[in-house]
C-alpha cells in the first residue's frame, strides 16, 4: 500500500515535467503551444505548388521544390477517393520544368472533381498553365505572374535540341493556356514577347487585376472567395446542373 502510494506520488511528480517538455517542444517547432484539434476528415483537399517545379534533374535539398512524383499520385488519390469532393490548388511558384509543369496542369485539367486555383505571391512561368488548368482561378491583388518564352540550356532529354523542337514545346504551353483560359493567343504571345518589362529579357510581369483584365485568370480574390466558389461548384456538380463552364 505504502509502496503503491509512493509510486503514485512519483508518477504525479513526473507529470508536470513531461508536460512542460511537450510545451517547449511545441514552442521550438511551431512557435506556439497548442494547435487547434479537429477531426481528420474533409471533403475539400488542398494541393500546394510551391518553390520550383522539379523536372528530370533532382534539385539539391536546400531548394524548395514541388516534385511531380509526389503531386501526381496525390491527384490520382483525390480522383479515386469518393470522400473528396473538391480540390483547392494553391500556387506560389517561380516555375521550373516545362514538361513536369504541363504534366501537373494536364492532370488537374482532367480531374473530374471541381477544382479552384488561387495564386498567392507568384505563379510565374510554368505556374501559369497550372493556375489556368482549374475550373475557376483566383489571384490575390498583389500576386504576380511572369509570362515569358521558354528558356532552356538547349538540353532537352539529355541531348541538344533544335530550335524547332523548342518552338513546338512553347506552342504546347501557349495552346494549353489559351484553351483553358479566356486569353486570346495573340494577347498571350504579345505579353510573352514584349520588351522592356523584364531586365535583359523579354516577357511581362502581370499583376493580379491585370491578369484578370487580360482574361488569363477568372477573378481577383482570396481564400474565402476561392472556398466559396469551390463549395458552389461542388453543389452544382451534386445537383447536376449542366456542365461546369470553363
Amino acid at each position: 500500500m505504502e509502496k503503491e502510494r509512493y509510486f503514485q506520488a512519483e508518477a504525479e511528480g513526473e507529470q508536470p515535467e513531461t508536460k512542460t517538455e511537450e510545451a517547449t517542444a511545441a514552442i521550438t517547432q511551431l512557435g506556439q503551444t497548442n494547435v487547434p484539434q479537429m477531426e481528420l476528415d474533409t471533403n475539400i483537399h488542398c494541393l500546394t505548388i510551391v518553390g520550383q517545379i522539379e523536372g528530370h534533374i533532382q534539385l539539391p535539398p536546400q531548394n524548395k521544390a514541388t516534385k511531380y512524383e509526389h503531386v501526381i499520385p496525390q491527384i490520382v488519390a483525390i480522383e479515386q477517393n469518393p470522400k473528396i469532393e473538391g480540390l483547392l490548388v494553391i500556387l506560389n511558384t517561380v516555375g521550373g520544368d516545362v514538361e513536369a509543369g504541363l504534366a501537373i496542369a494536364e492532370m488537374l485539367a482532367s480531374l473530374s472533381k471541381p477544382t479552384v486555383s488561387i495564386v498567392l505571391g507568384g505563379g510565374h512561368s510554368i505556374g501559369v498553365p497550372i493556375a489556368v488548368s482549374c475550373d475557376h482561378s483566383f489571384i490575390t491583388e498583389t500576386a504576380t505572374m511572369t509570362i515569358h518564352p521558354i528558356r532552356l540550356t538547349g538540353l532537352v532529354i539529355g541531348v541538344p535540341q533544335t530550335f524547332e523542337y523548342l518552338d513546338k514545346m512553347q506552342e504546347r504551353v501557349v495552346r494549353f493556356v489559351t484553351k483553358h483560359s479566356k486569353i486570346s493567343e495573340e494577347k498571350f504571345k504579345e505579353l510573352m514577347f514584349s520588351k522592356g518589362n523584364l531586365t535583359r529579357d523579354i516577357g511581362t510581369n502581370v499583376v493580379g487585376p491585370d491578369a484578370v483584365r487580360y482574361g488569363l485568370i477568372d477573378e481577383v480574390g482570396g481564400v474565402s472567395q476561392a472556398m466559396a466558389k469551390l463549395r458552389e461548384l461542388i453543389e452544382m456538380k451534386k445537383s447536376g446542373e449542366g456542365k461546369i463552364v470553363q
Binding site: 517547432q29 511551431l30 497548442n34 494547435v35 479537429m38 474533409t42 475539400i44 494541393l47 509526389h70
Partner: peptide, 16 residues
C-alpha cells in the same frame, strides 16, 4: 506532403 488540410493542424505532423 499531405493534401488534407487537417493533417496540418496536428502538432505531431508539423515540420520539426
Amino acid at each position: 506532403l499531405s493534401t488534407n488540410p487537417y493533417h496540418f493542424l496536428e502538432a505531431k505532423y508539423a515540420p520539426g
